[in-house]
Simulated assay, not measured.
Amino acid sequence: MTDSLHPFARLDPSRVVAAVESLGFWLPGEPFALNSYENRVFMLHDDERRRWIAKFYRPGRWSNEQIQEEHDFLDELAAADVAVAAPWRDDGGVSLHDAEGFRFALYPQISGQAPELDNPAHLFALGEVIGAMHAVGEQQGFSHRRRLDLDEMLSEACEAVLASPWLERRQRQAYRQVTDELQRALADRGWAPQANIRVHGDCHLGNMLGRDDTFGLVDFDDCLMAPAVQDIWMLLSGQQSDEWQMQLSEVIEGYEQHREFDRRELALIEPLRALRLIRHSAWLVARWADPAFPMAFPWLAESRYWDQHIRQLEQQRRWLDPPMP
């Protein structure tokens, strides 16, 4: 069941407008809700025709200190001419604002389209902007945001799924078996990233926008300390070896315009893929009380989804097997 009294249920358009106008803006039109689930995000324009993105943070997810580190990182990146949208600050330098119990921030809108991963020029441009971001990210570390810990994050996600009511008994047994095997395989493979730096954390196509082979990065909500390859592996979508190698070559060539990439981190791609598969389902389970989730992901409650998910994990388990001698 969902909880109709979820905090975001109170975040209607009038409250969004009132929150933004409390900062001294005047909004002549209604905010437009964007496709965001973890937080609530709205596009709007002010009386000077400037376009803004208003991001209302999910209550209880991040501390003020963690959000502030996100904002400060964006300021560093913008100062280094990396293509990101730094948060608006008031005359006192404040970027994280409060209204009726909601914490929110304003960002100038970055417009454009998602890149095409079969376009070499786009891949080069994506590598270039990620490399420029990492060149700044390695200069210091986060103090409050998470560090990518494979064992800890896998355990958290598996426990969340197993504690949920969605799996049938046979599915629960199969899920436990395959995730135990995955964790053992990952432990045998080893998890020793050469270096953790500040990274975006969620570099999928929806968080990269641009045109004419120039792209910017948006939504740093998941930024953390992690190996550089965390921001690269999702760009490598090729199903055939030659296609995959082409994508990797273009991304790394662009990346190394700003920073050297440690090729040893490529061995972390399949462990990171396994982590993302498991955490995605755990995320859906954890957010089910938010009314937006049952509407957007109704198949979570279907038995066939969990059968398919278990098969995915079994396939990923085979990818982690060592090559035959």
Rank of each mutant, 00 (worst) to 15 (best):
R50M: 11
R279Y: 02
L154Q: 12
S14V: 15
Q140D: 00
F142P: 01
D188V: 07
D81K: 09
C158A: 09
S111W: 09
W52T: 02
G210P: 04
V218N: 00
N119K: 07
D242Q: 13
A18I: 08
F104A: 07
L74S: 03
F124L: 13
F220G: 08
Q140I: 00
H204F: 07
I110N: 07
D262Y: 11
F42C: 02
L186Q: 07
P227D: 03
S303P: 00
E69L: 01
Y305I: 05
F25D: 04
G206N: 09
Q183E: 14
A79T: 09
A114L: 06
G60C: 06
I278L: 14
Q230W: 05
E181G: 14
R145F: 01
D222Y: 05
P87K: 07
G254D: 12
H258F: 06
A289I: 01
Q257S: 07
W319S: 14
P291Q: 08
Q171R: 10
D46M: 03
L320Y: 09
V129D: 01
F25K: 09
E168W: 03
D81I: 00
L224M: 15
A163N: 11
P28W: 09
L277G: 01
N64C: 11
R276Q: 11
I232D: 00
S36V: 13
E302S: 10
R176N: 06
V229T: 01
D90C: 07
P7W: 08
L277N: 05
E256V: 05
L148Q: 14
G201M: 13
R145T: 00
E138Q: 15
G141F: 02
F215Q: 03
L320D: 10
H45P: 01
L154P: 03
T214S: 12
A187G: 05
A105N: 02
L117P: 08
H45R: 13
D219T: 14
A195Q: 15
L167F: 05
V251T: 00
R58G: 05
H258A: 07
S95I: 03
N35A: 13
F25C: 07
W306N: 11
V41T: 10
L313H: 04
E70Q: 14
L236N: 09
E30S: 11
M43G: 13
R279F: 03
D149V: 04
L117D: 08
S241E: 09
S303M: 05
A292L: 14
G201P: 14
A160S: 12
L123R: 08
C223N: 08
L300S: 06
L209I: 04
M246Y: 00
D90V: 02
V41Q: 00
L236A: 08
L205T: 12
E156T: 03
R273Y: 14
Q183P: 03
E256A: 03
Q68K: 10
Q171M: 10
R287C: 10
V17A: 08
Q66N: 02
A33E: 15
Q66P: 01
A292Q: 13
R170P: 00
Q173S: 06
E69N: 00
P323T: 05
A195R: 15
A228F: 11
I110G: 07
I310N: 12
Q183M: 15
V16C: 13
E70Y: 08
V285W: 05
S14D: 14
L148F: 10
A174P: 10
F56T: 04
A296N: 14
G210Y: 03
R10E: 15
P31V: 13
P120V: 02
